[in-house]
Computed example of a mutant assay.
Amino acid sequence: MAAKPGLVYLVTGGCGFLGQHVFRMLLEKEDNVAEVRLFDLAVDDSLANLSTEKITVKLIQGDITDLTTVLKVTEGVDVVIHSASLVDVWHKVPESKIQAVNVQGTCHVIQACQDHGIQYLIYTSSMEVVGPNVNGEPFYSSC
C-alpha cells in the first residue's frame, strides 16, 4: 500500500481557540495535507469527525510539559504549528505552571523538531502567554 501524498501537520494546542481555527484553515485552504494531528491536554472528540477522504485527523491527548510525549507525537511530522499555551487572565495559576507550559513546553517542541529533523516550526503567541509585565522587568528565557 502506497503512502498518502501530502504533509503531516501537528498542531499543539489543537483543540484550543487558536488551534481549532488553524486546524480548520488547514482543512479548507491547504492542498498538500495528508494528516493533521491535534495535540492537546484536553481533546475535543467532535474534531475527529472532520477527517475526509484525503485528510486524516488524529486527536492526541497529552501534556506539552512531558518531553517524552512531545517526542513521540512529533515522530513522522513535516510541519509543527505550535499554538499550545496557558493564559491566566485572573492570576489564579501559579507562575511555575505558566512557565512550565509556555516556556518549557516550547523548548520541548523545539527540541523535538531538532531531534526529528522537522524543518518547519510555526510559533504562535501573544503577550497574554507570558502574562502582564507587572514589575517592569523584561521577560527572558532560554531552553
Score class of each variant (00 low, 15 high):
S85R: 00
P5D: 11
Y123Q: 03
V129E: 07
F139L: 11
T12W: 05
G105D: 09
E128K: 12
I81N: 12
F17A: 05
H108W: 00
H116P: 10
H108V: 04
P138S: 04
M25K: 07
V57P: 07
R37T: 03
I122L: 14
K58L: 10
A42D: 00
G76Q: 13
G16C: 01
I98W: 03
M25P: 05
H91W: 10
S126Y: 06
I60C: 05
A42I: 08
D88G: 05
T56D: 12
P94F: 04
V36W: 09
Y9R: 02
T106P: 10
A48C: 07
L121F: 15
D44R: 05
A112Y: 08
A42V: 14
A48Q: 10
A100T: 05
V43Q: 06
I60H: 01
A34T: 04
V77Q: 01
S142V: 13
S83C: 14
Q99C: 06
L59N: 13
G76W: 10
T124A: 06
C107P: 02
N102W: 00
H108S: 08
A48G: 05
N32E: 15
P5E: 13
E35H: 12
K97E: 11
G136H: 10
M1L: 05
H116Y: 14
D44H: 02
Q20T: 15
K29M: 07
I118Y: 10
V33A: 10
G6V: 10
S142D: 15
Q99I: 00
L121C: 09
Q119F: 01
H91I: 01
V8D: 10
N133T: 06
E75R: 06
Y9W: 07
V70S: 09
Q119E: 09
Q104I: 04
G6R: 06
V73L: 02
F39S: 06
T106A: 04
L71M: 14
I64R: 02
E75D: 03
E35R: 13
A3G: 12
G105S: 11
C113L: 14
L67Y: 11
